[in-house]
């Protein structure tokens, strides 16, 4: 267990006059403890006092301070957090002060469920006036780890419950400029274009988003996220997906420049399965990718795409073979 300076200087609760009236309650491990834990002395003592205060339902300032100590020793103890909220509510405590405490705790334990739960409770209490502060705070966490799931969940909750959508699409752009492979940022982008009350929804955003996504793909064809995002832009509308020339042209461009990009081939395969009629040029580009040593010749373009993928994507060759054997009848 790592020890810090304040732990070394810590005065035991039993030696603090303000706690002299409390009789600590030891943990009851039952008659046959299966897995007794040899707690560190200060931890055991703190929890013994916590149990006493908790059982007495003491809603006092010192109870809050005690939960601060207990949380510092184990921020995952959800019972302690729950009691802290009960007491803070009873005391009508200054929740901005609580927010500062929580900022420090989160910075040290950025993946702790209890801390983020407490944060939402707090933001809910403080209301829309803290929306931008909360967005700033999650940004500071995402600056350290751009894929922290808790921070993203909290951010989405803040946007939907407290507002602050104004700059969210710009924020996504910034993150993607930083790392175009960041799937969390692509997910957030989809969240914004489909849910922001300021943007008009998926239909209104589709045209400009297809442009943005196409550029991202051309800059980095082996990036799975924008390929999926592109499909998401046509969600539930396969006929629009196959009739938008920009999509098939993107496949063509990528296949011409970067040999056998599996995402381009995968998208082309889906287009063909949906009934897309390929141009002669596209057909020729795909045929050229086929390994000349491959003896299985197929007149069917969809099957050819599968065969290429079976060779060039060996980790998923079983998957592509399965696709080849399950092509819809109209393209077989």
């Amino acid at each position: 267990m790592p020890s810090s300076v304040d732990e070394v200087d810590r005065i035991p609760l039993s030696a603090r006059p303000e706690w002299s009236d409390v009789r600590p309650v030891p943990q009851d491990d039952g008659p046959n403890p299966v897995a007794p834990i040899a707690y560190r002395d200060d931890f055991r003592e703190t929890m013994d006092y916590f149990r006493a205060v908790y059982l007495a339902d003491e809603r006092s300032r010192r109870a809050v301070d005690l939960t601060t100590e207990a949380i510092g020793m184990n921020p995952g103890n959800y019972t302690v957090w729950h009691f802290r909220r009960v007491v803070l509510e009873s005391l009508n405590a200054d929740l901005h002060e609580e927010r500062d405490f929580l900022d420090r705790m989160t910075m040290r334990n950025a993946k702790n469920y209890q801390i983020w739960h407490h944060r939402r409770w707090l933001a809910e209490k403080l209301g829309p006036e803290v929306a931008n502060k909360e967005l700033e705070f999650t940004k500071s966490i995402l600056d350290l780890d751009a894929k922290n799931y808790h921070a993203w969940s909290h951010r989405q909750w803040v946007l939907q419950s407290l507002g602050g959508w104004e700059n969210e699409l710009d924020y996504c752009c910034m993150l993607l400029e930083d790392d175009i492979f960041n799937n969390s940022a692509w997910n957030q982008r989809y969240f914004v274009i489909t849910r922001s009350p300021l943007l008009g929804g998926l239909q209104a955003m589709r045209d400009s988003e297809v442009g943005y996504t196409t550029e991202a793909i051309l800059a980095n064809p082996p990036n799975e996220s924008p390929w999926r995002y592109l499909r998401g832009l046509y969600k539930g509308n396969a006929s629009q997906l196959i009739s938008d020339n920009r999509v098939s042209e993107l496949c063509l461009k990528v296949l011409k420049t970067s040999n056998s990009c599996r995402f381009a081939l995968g998208l082309l395969l889906d287009l063909l399965c949906y009934g897309f009629q390929p141009s002669e040029e596209l057909r020729a580009v795909v045929e050229a990718l086929r390994n000349s040593e491959q003896d299985t010749v197929s007149s069917n373009l969809a099957a050819t795409v599968c065969l290429i993928l079976e060779i060039t994507d060996p980790m998923r060759s079983n998957y592509w073979a399965w696709r080849r054997n399950n092509l819809p009848s109209q393209v077989r």
């Binding site: 834990i37 560190r40 184990n74 995952g76 103890n77």
Partner: peptide, 21 residues
């Protein structure tokens, strides 16, 4: 692990021991 007495992990996971079991 079931018999283990004291280490950092045992302490911070005490509230989720049921999962460990």
């Amino acid at each position: 692990v079931e018999k283990k007495k004291d280490d950092f992990e045992a302490l911070v996971i005490e509230h989720l021991r049921m999962n460990g079991a």
